[in-house]
Design a protein around this nucleic acid. Structure first.
Length: 765
DNA sequence: GAGCACTGC
């Protein structure tokens, strides 16, 4: 290589810097290369600025489109752009950095591009990844960056979310992805060798996946000095992350800080605590409507019912105002917003405010009444007033009874700030907090508890063990979960035979981890071929993994209930779910059919999608897809397979009043009113424990004690059980059974192990 | 005789 031809396909694959050193070519030709002189991980902002202005796209070597320059002018106005020099100074010097970028700083779109100029991942077959907590964000940011970089979506720049991989192996070097997706990858490739830099965006949201990734990446950074990490977060959490990612006993990780671009928001508190926050919220909205300048209102409430109720009341009161004095106030529209609303109705939040009732009359106003969805997931432009009663529904986990439930709780200071910020996106705004300043200062927690402290960790623990992390108690968590939560998870996985008594992954557990499911579900799915009903269990599993398919509109409850009764299988709710799905398929995914039967077409489509994904995983691990033809046998088989996964979620009837008592935890529960069983069987197996007006079990099927004893002998080993009616009933069943089956009971082999062992012998080894 | 904040694989 002594001369540089005009085009050399070999040279084109070489890194420009390497080319420059490997051949002393004439500088005039080479400098036409946009990336000429770039040294990986040691580039300067000057170099990057020059490359960005180059006529050729540095990554495709194609001339830029006119659109590129136009977008570039807008990019240059972003606050991060002004601090490019500082960014490279810090990034070049450190392996891990923490970045704080307020709303509007441009961090999510720009920082990954800056990193691409530094890592030059396209020359080394590496990828720069940027994680997002939400799928829509990963998708829309990737699309934006594609335009900014003048490349094609799914080629050089792409995204990867569940059900959709918009990347091209070997070509994609910048990838936006959900945090859950990267965690999945880490499970199978603990060194994440494809990545040169990993950026965790929105780290302050502390999703379960991001928290686990922080732990994994912190230790990975020691094994892989070539891997760089950027943790992007809101201000309040930065110090915590800096300390966490600091080298032990040494300095905290360096901070790169960029201001945001928002407008000031004036905050008001109430003088006294409000006894009824919904009533106070309604009053405040109407007060704003009467007395404040034009501008839309965003009110935060906790759930669907509260929101629909408030919508009706505000509408009624506003109408009264107008009728009473049409001169003083303009028209007002109320728009509800929560996640179970169909997307079409969610779009209504972007409708413009209503026009004035008449020429020169007072202008109209839009009020969006929303759950927390408007705090992070959706931004509504034009909001000037925020009404914040200070509550949201939050997930809480009680490890003692293994129950996750939703509880209306006070929000955190961080959350309150986020809410207030929603008023200042387009111009200066006001935020009305329906609590006192004193309560804000002294009663609200600084941060919302990270999800890892509020969740059942069974799934997470299985993923961690699969990723090679065995000592879960001493794992370096940003915030360690309660030991009891970990213990409960390990215990469940052990009973399910996913982990052996030493906490090692079993062959069964190894396959279970591959399914994006709760361990009870993956266990039941994997063992279902032994019962000759895997096609059916696959469907039921998919139906249990999506939101409830039944619709029950307020004004058509009766009709909805009748429609549901037509599809109900009296032997159990799980069989009803199977029946609904099968009917949906028989009716060829017909939307009219779903509509006429008060079923959510969206949820059913999702179920079908999930079913396909699970099916592919089953095929990959040679979990057979089989059915028995005889319906009676099939119904039995399905409930037996259910027992293999859900034997820890069993309740026994106590007395004649329809009360049930959960086995071992001894919680008194009732069958949920949605339950379709036509009798009250002595033993039931349930999918879910819900704590609302009282404790209910939901999605329930009949179980038989002999199945429990046969498929979960370790769990139903009665030697160390407390005395009680449940124990007596089980003992009766056991005695009866022992007479019948004798020796087989002694084996004590847990269902599922046999099948996996067989497969292992044949295929896995 | 009820209800499902939100997200993710």
């Amino acid at each position: 290589m002594t001369s540089t031809p005009k085009f050399n396909p070999y040279l084109a694959h070489l890194h420009p810097a390497e080319r420059a050193t490997s051949s002393k070519v004439n500088a005039a030709t080479s400098s036409k290369e946009p990336l000429f002189g770039f040294l990986p991980r040691n580039v300067s902002a000057d170099q990057v600025r020059t490359a960005i202005e180059h006529d050729l796209n540095p990554f495709t070597k194609q001339p830029h489109t006119p659109q590129y320059k136009k977008i570039l002018e807008a990019r240059k106005k972003l606050p991060v752009f002004a601090q490019m020099d500082e960014f490279y100074k810090i990034f070049n010097k450190h392996q891990i950095i923490v970045m704080v970028g307020e709303t509007g700083s441009g961090k999510t779109t720009q920082i990954p591009q800056f990193v691409a100029y530094s890592d030059l991942p396209h020359t080394k077959n590496k990828i720069v990844a940027c994680t997002q907590p939400r799928r829509v964000a990963a998708m829309s940011v990737a699309k934006r960056v594609v335009d900014e970089m003048d490349v094609q979506l799914g080629r050089q720049v792409g995204y990867s979310i569940r059900f959709e991989d918009m990347t091209e192996p070997g070509t994609t070097f910048l990838k936006y992805m959900t945090d859950g997706m990267l965690l999945r990858e880490a499970m199978n490739d603990p060194d994440l060798n494809r990545y040169s830099t990993i950026i965790l965006d929105e780290a302050h949201e502390r999703t379960l996946a991001t928290d686990i990734l922080m732990g994994i990446l912190k230790s990975l950074a020691q094994r892989r000095p070539d891997l760089k990490l950027i943790i992007m977060s809101a201000t309040l959490d930065a110090i915590k992350f800096q300390k966490y990612f600091g080298i032990t006993g040494n300095a905290p990780a360096p901070l790169f800080k960029v201001p945001g671009r928002t407008h000031p928001v004036e905050v008001f508190y109430t003088q006294e605590p409000e006894p009824d926050y919904v009533e106070a919220a309604i009053r405040t909205v109407l007060m704003i409507h009467r007395a404040e300048e034009p501008g839309d209102i965003l009110l935060f409430l906790t759930g669907e019912e509260e929101i629909e109720d408030a919508c009706r009341k505000i509408k009624a009161e506003a109408d009264d105002l107008i009728n009473g004095d049409p001169e003083s106030v303009g028209p007002l529209v109320c728009i509800p917003l929560y996640s179970s609303l169909p997307p079409q109705q969610q779009q209504r939040i972007f409708d413009p405010a209503p026009k004035a009732g008449r020429v020169d009359g007072p202008p109209g106003r839009k009020v969006v009444i929303s759950t927390n969805i408007a705090e992070t997931s959706l931004t509504i432009d034009g909001i000037v007033y925020v009404v914040d009663p200070g509550f949201s529904k939050q997930k809480v986990y009680n490890p003692r009874i293994r129950v996750e439930s939703l509880l209306v709780s006070p929000i955190s200071k961080a959350s309150a700030q986020q809410r207030a910020g929603r008023a200042g996106r387009t111009r200066p705004g006001k935020c009305f907090r329906l609590y006192t300043e004193k309560d804000f200062m002294s009663e609200l927690e600084e941060q919302t508890h990270p999800e890892i402290l509020r969740s059942n960790l069974a799934n997470t623990v299985l993923e961690l063990v699969k990723a090679g992390i065995k000592d879960l108690v001493r794992f370096d968590y940003v915030d360690a979960p309660a030991p009891e939560t970990l213990m409960r998870a390990l215990e469940l996985l052990n009973y399910l035979a996913a982990l052996d008594d030493d906490g090692n992954l079993t062959p069964l557990g190894n396959i279970m981890a591959e399914f994006p499911l709760d361990p009870q579900l993956s266990k039941m799915l994997i063992v279902s071929p032994e019962f000759k009903c895997s096609n059916e269990i696959l469907t039921i599993t998919a139906m249990l993994s999506v939101p409830v398919v039944w619709l029950r509109p307020n004004n058509q409850r009766k009709e909805a209930d009748i429609a549901k009764a037509r599809l109900t299988v009296p032997d159990g709710d799980h069989l009803t779910l199977l029946n609904v799905y099968n009917n949906y398929i028989q009716n060829q995914y017909d939307k009219n059919w779903t509509w006429n039967n008060f079923l959510s077409a969206r949820a059913l489509m999702q179920a079908d999608n999930v079913r396909e994904q699970l099916k592919r995983t089953m095929e990959r691990f040679e979990v057979e897809l089989v059915s028995v033809q005889d319906q009676k046998k099939m119904f039995l088989a399905i409930r037996q397979a259910l027992c293999c996964g859900f034997f820890m979620q069993v309740a026994h009837k106590e007395g004649e009043k329809g009360n049930y008592m959960t086995v071992k935890d001894n919680q008194v529960v009732a069958l949920h009113p949605s339950c379709g069983l036509d009798t009250q069987p002595e033993w039931v197996i349930f999918n879910e424990f819900v704590l609302t007006t009282r404790p209910y079990i939901r999605t329930v099927s009949e179980a038989r004690p002999e199945w429990l004893l046969e498929y979960a002998p370790m769990y139903f080993d009665m030697k160390n059980w407390p005395d009680g009616e449940t124990k007596r009933a089980l003992t009766r069943a056991a005695n009866k059974r022992e007479g019948k089956f004798g020796a087989r009971f002694e084996e004590g082999e847990r269902a599922g192990e046999a099948g996996v062992k067989k497969r292992k012998k044949n295929k896995l080894q």
